[in-house]
């Protein structure tokens, strides 16, 4: 575990960041409105190492990454990425394989901690608090920033125990009745309750792939996180199961900030409010989804979404 936070004085910096961000985001959003109003044609950027084009600021920032770099040993996997994630907002990370989307996602709940050679620099804050500071317990952070993985990974336990796992380890329920109600609510919100309510004691692995993925989502929201990270949650699912999960994300974003990594441009267009395009570890372009897909400002983004690369 080699997390190095490159700040001289974390507390000082942390205190100073939040107000600055607010000012910035105000400025940016005005600017943004102006840009939308203009039917402009700005010259497209073409270089890969340059500044991120578009708008990295969110209206109501909840998770903020500033100049994040990730190294796996000597491999510089993420280069100087800054991105804000707003409350009640779905942000999609897209880009060709190996571009660092998943690596960036895993920084947001410090899952990279478990990789010995990984080193993260820069500042990531959750609700104004640095998540890499010494006093931050990664376990507590992950309870606030939940994660759904590419492959459905239910535990080898019953459906009930899968959902009850998080509340149990975090002591969220005082008695069995409360635990029951958490499990039922979570399954209901994940749209799975109807299908499984008569067989809660069956093993979680007995469900179909799409049901398993919804079980994993139920398991994540049972802990009542503030942000949900989804790492290609539909890549192992058929179109029907995918549609159900996308509907579910629409509902969930009323309460949670959601960051989703996806390889499907259609999915990004359907579910997200903002899109961030990664290329070779750089964050190339971030903007509102409609804008990126209709009028990309960077050559690489355009090439990717029109199918010329990736």
């Amino acid at each position: 575990m080699n997390i190095v936070v490159m700040t001289d004085n974390p507390t000082e910096k942390q205190d100073s960041t939040s107000p600055v961000v607010e000012v910035n985001s105000l400025e940016q959003s005005t600017q943004h409105r102006l840009q939308v109003a203009l039917p402009e044609f700005t010259e497209q950027a073409t270089d890969v190492g340059g500044e991120t084009v578009g708008n990295v600021r969110a209206e109501n920032p909840f998770m903020v990454a500033e100049n994040v770099n990730v190294y796996y040993g000597d491999n510089h996997a993420i280069r100087d990425v800054s991105l804000e994630i707003g409350k009640k907002q779905v942000v999609a990370l897209i880009g060709p394989s190996g571009c660092g989307k998943s690596t960036f996602l895993r920084c947001l709940n410090r899952m990279n901690d478990s990789i010995d050679t990984a080193r993260v620099t820069g500042m990531i804050t959750l609700d104004g608090e640095d998540i890499n500071r010494k006093a931050q317990d990664p376990v507590a952070l992950r309870a606030r920033v939940g994660m759904v993985f590419q492959k459905p990974n239910p535990f080898p336990k019953s459906i009930y125990d899968n959902v009850a796992y998080g509340p149990r380890i975090h002591g969220l329920a005082v008695d069995r009745a409360e635990l029951d109600s958490i499990v039922h609510t979570s399954l209901e919100r994940a749209g799975l309750l109807k299908e499984v309510k008569d067989r809660l004691e069956d093993p979680g692995t007995s469900l179909s792939g799409g049901q398993q993925q919804r079980l994993c989502i139920a398991r994540t929201i049972a802990v009542n996180p503030e942000v949900i990270l989804m790492d290609e949650p539909c890549s192992a699912l058929d179109p029907i199961a995918t549609a159900r999960i996308e509907d579910l994300m629409d509902e969930l974003c009323e309460d949670y900030a959601i960051v989703i990594v996806t390889h499907s441009m259609q999915q990004a267009a359907r579910v997200s409010r903002r899109v961030a395009y990664f290329h070779l570890g750089h964050l190339v372009e971030v903007d509102d989804t409609d804008r990126v897909f209709t009028n990309p400002r960077h050559k690489l983004t355009e090439d990717y979404i029109t199918g010329r690369i990736g």
Binding site: V148, P156, H170
Partner: peptide
Amino acid sequence: AMRDGALGLG
């Protein structure tokens, strides 16, 4: 994936 799932839930 099992390990990640458990760690991801805190």
